[in-house]
């Protein structure tokens, strides 16, 4: 406690180096690629913004972008309300709390590709419990051939995998609300909905913002699960931006367009996150300006 030294900064150095090596250098490489072309032999030509223009005008890119946006929108529309709902229904005290928390945490512990594989098997009509079950009920379910089925499978899979995160975040916000707020609401004769709208929602807004941002970024960049389950198909039905990007870069080895696409992708995520953040915090601005002094 007594001694203070600046050696602490040395400890941070490895992390800084790691971040430098793993994030900044590759990013600069990508920027470099995005403005050049190559015919192999390590020869590069300056092409300026040509790749960017090509990508922005490409129908394939537009379609992939639309699919990804639709996917993220559906994910948010399902997982956020569902997550809030489950969090509200969870017990606030007693043994039920830990049971619920463990159950909620379970899906989060499973790696992405495993989730994909589980669902890939789960949904197969020959041996999968879900696929076979549905088929034996007379439902024509086949995610490898039917676009709707493929989307439904991936969305349900993601909901199963990630709603818990929203639940846990919202739950942490909900249990932090002091009991007097509920008491006051009871005395004011507030309905269940009014309690949610005027007490719980404002109080969990901040964690909800984090949940929305995390789920948006994650779903917008989804790769592993659809790659494992549908491989982007049937046709291009589940070819999201990330899958498209990998196909361009690794499959076709078009490094220039792929780099330009990465950057555009990156900028879209950045832009959308900023929009979400601004929209959700704009009403907080004034409040936070007066805060900070209150001890």
């Amino acid at each position: 406690m007594k001694t203070v030294n600046n050696k602490a900064w040395l400890m941070v150095l490895p992390v800084l180096l790691l971040v430098g090596l793993s994030a900044i250098i590759p990013l600069m490489t990508v920027v470099n690629y995005s403005v050049q072309d190559t015919f192999g032999n390590n020869e590069f030509f300056w092409v300026g913004t040509e790749w960017f223009q090509e990508i922005l005008h490409s129908e394939r890119f537009h379609n992939a972008l639309q699919r990804t946006l639709l996917f993220s929108a559906l994910i948010l529309a399902i997982e956020i309300p569902l997550g809030i709902g489950i969090a509200l229904a969870m017990p606030k005290r007693g043994i039920g709390v830990s049971v619920c928390l463990v159950l909620m945490a379970l899906p989060l512990l499973i790696p992405w590709n495993v989730v994909g594989t589980i669902w890939q098997v789960f949904g197969r009509i020959d041996i999968g419990l879900l696929g076979h079950g549905l088929a034996s009920l007379g439902l024509d379910y086949n995610y490898t051939q039917n676009t709707f089925d493929a989307w439904a499978t991936i969305i349900i899979m993601d909901v199963w995998h990630w709603t818990s995160l929203v639940v846990l975040l919202c739950y942490s916000g909900l249990v932090a609300i002091p009991e007097v707020y509920y008491q006051a609401a009871r005395i004011d004769g507030a309905s269940r909905w009014a309690v949610f709208r005027y007490i719980q929602l404002p109080k969990i807004k901040r964690v909800l913002l984090i949940a929305v941002l995390l789920r948006f970024m994650d779903s917008f960049m989804i790769y592993t699960e659809p790659f494992v389950v549908t491989g982007g198909g049937p046709g291009n039905a589940t070819t999201f931006l990330s899958i498209d990007l990998v196909q361009t870069a690794v499959g076709q080895f078009d490094l220039g367009p792929a780099a330009a696409m990465s950057l555009i992708y990156f900028l879209i995520i950045l832009l959308l996150c900023w929009v979400f953040y601004t929209v959700m915090t704009v009403s907080d601005q004034r409040a936070s300006a007066t805060k900070g002094r209150n001890h």
Partner: peptide
């Protein structure tokens, strides 16, 4: 009945 608590309870939004 109406009740006023130790810490002011208002509907912030």
């Amino acid at each position: 009945i109406a009740q006023v608590f130790q810490f002011p309870v208002v509907y912030e939004t």
